[in-house]
């Protein structure tokens, strides 16, 4: 097993040891195959990344309120779970756009340029189809999570005393993410098809 030549997991320098500080533009590159959609995903990613920091802040606030004032919030745990969930879902799309998902590449390494190109195109198409099915299934789920049987709009809530509409929102967000994911794989397939077959050696890490 080896790292894929197109595995961009580490297209960036090794975590620095010396000097300790470096500007953080190392996560900003998006492979060309992801196109403009990939850039857009990259552009909005800080919003979701900061969600994790916000979740951290909320948990600290909750500890503080509970331990110092003996008045725990009713919303902290639900909200941090929601923020993390949104981050996890978006993180999957983000890794797809950046082609950072982990792969096993035995076949890839022994394949010639033509087969590699075929694999790239094939994998993108298969992932696109799968994402399409999931998006459709998510739509069925969203219908039940956003509407009452009578047809009124009602976002599914957590059912707690705080009762935030997080489940409804998260399901809608999952649907949207799966749609974008499908489109992202579509463009990757197109762009792999357009590109010239990769000649192995210079791409190997």
């Amino acid at each position: 097993m080896a790292t894929s030549p197109i595995d961009n997991t580490h297209d960036t320098p090794t975590p620095s040891i010396d000097p300790p500080l470096e500007p953080d533009d190392r996560t900003e590159t998006i492979p060309a195959v992801s196109g403009r959609l990939g850039s857009a995903v990259n552009k909005i990613s800080p919003v979701f990344a900061f969600g994790f920091l916000l979740a951290m802040g909320i948990l600290i606030f909750e500890i503080f309120m509970r331990h110092v004032f003996n008045s725990p919030t009713l919303w902290a745990h639900e909200t941090t779970t929601f923020l993390s969930a949104v981050g996890f879902v978006f993180g999957g799309l983000y890794c797809a756009s950046k082609d950072k998902h982990i792969r096993v590449v035995i076949l890839y390494d022994i394949a010639g340029p033509k087969l590699r190109k075929a694999l790239d195109v094939g994998i993108s198409i298969v992932c696109m189809i799968a994402s399409g099915f999931f998006a459709w299934a998510a739509w069925l789920m969203v219908k039940r999570a956003t509407m009452t049987p009578a047809g009124d709009i009602h976002f599914e809530t957590t059912g707690s005393a705080f009762n935030a509409p997080y489940p409804g929102i998260l399901k809608v967000f999952l649907l949207l993410t799966l749609i974008v994911l499908m489109v992202q794989f579509f463009w990757q397939a197109i762009n792999y098809m357009r590109s010239a077959p990769i000649t192995g050696s210079e791409q190997n890490e």
Binding site: S71, H77, E78
Partner: peptide, 10 residues
Amino acid sequence: AAAGAAPVNI
């Protein structure tokens, strides 16, 4: 909550 307790949602 109405009875004066402090419910934690863990």
